[in-house]
């Protein structure tokens, strides 16, 4: 009984951190599906979102939910701006060039944060409505901090799913990811789709940031979470939105269990061991579709 509780507890915290990995992975996959570029600054977008929410809550005393909304909007606008100023001019350039630009962007964002007065290289935290609240069932103690992450992520996934499935813009985005040429000739503006993709990916990063902050606190190197979210995306198949979330959960749970039961150090490589294992058995990832070329 004791052991079961312990495992449940560990899995639960794994799920909540996995949700954040999933959100970042979702950002990777969204941008990849639309533009065939991997945005290595996705983790830094999360970090920026965390700093913005820290400023809003910690310094300007915004209520949590208002801060969440403002962070999403600000990050969304920032995504649009990034696409407009940096990435649009690169359309048609070789993919590796654009990928290098996103790596540059990640360094740029990190240095920028360290230079902004009030942000800098220190570690910060802020109050959330979930702090130090627990649900007790028997011997199981569930922290609201973790539960909130799971609930908000679930709601978000539901929203995103409805958006892509049922709206005209969402359908246009799916169509573009399947066949850009055909999408243009259906009257879909691919430029607008790209811009919207970056908006959504950046907003997701923002939400990831505000969710992760109570657990890891706010600091300049939060963006390295991308190193965990990337295997999550690959695990899911890198072309699949549900795959990104499932990949995130698997990595989150494994990591959490490894951190608890295995010696120091295993926690950080657990994600990669899982990834290599899955790729040996299923090279296209869990949810990936294998591209078959007819010859």
């Amino acid at each position: 009984m004791e052991l079961l509780n312990e495992i449940l507890q560990t899995v639960l915290s794994g799920i909540s951190i996995g949700c954040v990995y999933g959100l970042v992975a979702l950002g990777f996959v969204l941008i990849f599906k639309a533009t065939e570029v991997i945005n290595f600054a996705q983790g830094e977008l999360l970090m920026l979102g965390a700093f913005i929410s820290y400023s809003l809550i910690g310094l300007l005393h915004f209520p949590y939910w208002a801060a969440l909304a403002v962070t999403v909007i600000v990050m969304g606008l920032l995504g649009t701006l990034l696409e407009r100023t940096v990435l649009r001019s690169l359309v048609g350039e070789p993919v590796y060039a654009i990928v290098i630009v996103t790596i540059g962007l990640s360094y740029f964002l990190r240095s920028m944060v360290s230079m902004i007065p009030g942000w800098g290289t220190d570690t910060y935290g802020f109050q959330t409505p979930f702090a130090e609240k627990f649900i007790r069932t028997g011997k199981l103690v569930i922290s609201w901090e973790y539960l909130a992450i799971i609930l908000i992520t679930t709601a978000l996934i539901f929203l995103l799913f409805s958006f892509f499935r049922y709206t005209r813009v969402g359908t246009a985005m799916r169509a573009t990811s399947q066949n850009q040429l055909a999408a243009v000739y259906m009257g879909i503006s691919v430029t607008r789709v790209f811009s919207l993709t970056w908006t959504i990916a950046a907003a997701l990063g923002g939400i990831g940031g505000i969710l992760l902050s109570p657990i890891t606190f706010v600091h300049m190197n939060m963006g390295f979470i991308g190193l965990k979210a990337f295997p999550a995306a690959v695990l899911g198949g890198f072309g699949s939105l549900p795959g990104a979330i499932v990949g995130g959960l698997i990595i989150g749970i494994t990591e959490s269990l490894a951190g608890f039961y295995l010696p120091e150090g295993w926690k950080d490589i657990a994600a990669w061991i899982i990834l290599i294992g899955v790729l040996i058995i299923r090279p296209q990832g869990l949810f990936g579709i294998q591209e078959k070329k007819k010859v």
Binding site: A175, Q178, N179, L181, V184, Y185
Partner: peptide, 24 residues
């Protein structure tokens, strides 16, 4: 005009090497 506006003004097209949304 812009490429996506060609559809807007009422011109549709098919391709020699089929361009469909294949997973749909």
């Amino acid at each position: 005009i812009k490429p996506h506006e060609v559809a807007e003004i009422g011109i549709a097209r098919t391709f020699q090497n089929i361009e469909l949304f294949k997973n749909t």
